[in-house]
Design a protein around this nucleic acid. Sequence first.
DNA 1: AGGTACATGTAAGCTGTTACATGATTTT
DNA 2: AAAATCATGTAACAGCTTACATGTACCT
Lengths: 181, 181
Amino acid sequence: MDTKTLCLAVLSRSDASGYEIKKAFEDGPFAHITEVGFGSIYPALAALLGDGLVSVAKFEQEGRPDKKVYSLTSSGRMALLDALNEPTEPDKVRCDFLFRMMFSSLLTPSILEEMMDSRIDQLNATIARIEQGLEEEPGDAGDAFVRGFGLAMYKTMATYIEEHKYALLGASLLPDRAVAE
Amino acid sequence: MDTKTLCLAVLSRSDASGYEIKKAFEDGPFAHITEVGFGSIYPALAALLGDGLVSVAKFEQEGRPDKKVYSLTSSGRMALLDALNEPTEPDKVRCDFLFRMMFSSLLTPSILEEMMDSRIDQLNATIARIEQGLEEEPGDAGDAFVRGFGLAMYKTMATYIEEHKYALLGASLLPDRAVAE
DNA sequence: AGGTACATGTAAGCTGTTACATGATTTT
DNA sequence: AAAATCATGTAACAGCTTACATGTACCT
């Protein structure tokens, strides 16, 4: 699942520009799968074009660079199908928040609390965004599965942090004392 | 949170070899945070040694390369504290499983079912492993928070897949028909 | 006046992955 | 007999991130 495949995937749903592909991974139906930057997307699109897997249509715009809308070609569609038939890669995560929590005993309670609260806020914002998306564009069964999956995960995280917040904060305020007494 | 910081973090808990550091991210207390490969760890350890952030003790062994056990130096401990005071990075995920599920309509039901079942099995194995770890070595409040967090996530995933499995399979077996009738 | 959204692209640098190299011991 | 565990390390390659380069239009 490299950036090229990710672009093919978005384009299989609808034609899009590089800018719009990025949005699909931020807000759209491909959120929860991964993030991708412009620095990956534009070169990937150029490579796909070179390989004949996508075609492009240019639209002139005032005061902006021309908008380049890409479409899958039939070889592009086949390349996507091939990629989908490769063995599934293991998921990759890198979670800095959990890393900090492992060293919560070295943080001051106020910083710790601020970290947890801002994470809960972020999570709740994401949850609201997904719920809104579910109403606006239903999508097919796969889309619904993925969005529901993301929703379940974010809710679990927010709830977990809320429920264990004071346990961590308590341990931080009363380092060894609580056990001894 | 680069590999160097990750190594410092493990060493702050106890002295360890490169091999043992890797295990800490596979099975040990640092699971759920990220995976790291030997190809990242050994060069990171060499760099940390060059910067005086860790020291090393060699133990001769028969039939194996010498075991090199690294320890944090006081500058290493400070470097870790500095890293912990930097702003938290956003989490990174790349989930190939969800990506496949988005295109479940292109998969045969048997392949789709096999994908979901094997994912559930993997998840249950991980859950069992964490629960065992929770009993064996309790750890401090931060450790417990992180392990509980991981546990909650894996359980949510397994449950979600189980509960929505037949919805996806059903959509795959009866493409448009079900809606029309 | 400043921030955000729109819109594309390049280049250097940093990081991580994978394959290679070597090999004994223990478990299944 | 095969696979996993123990044990370290290098080198090439692939990939991603970040900074740079450019500029308008709208909203607060």
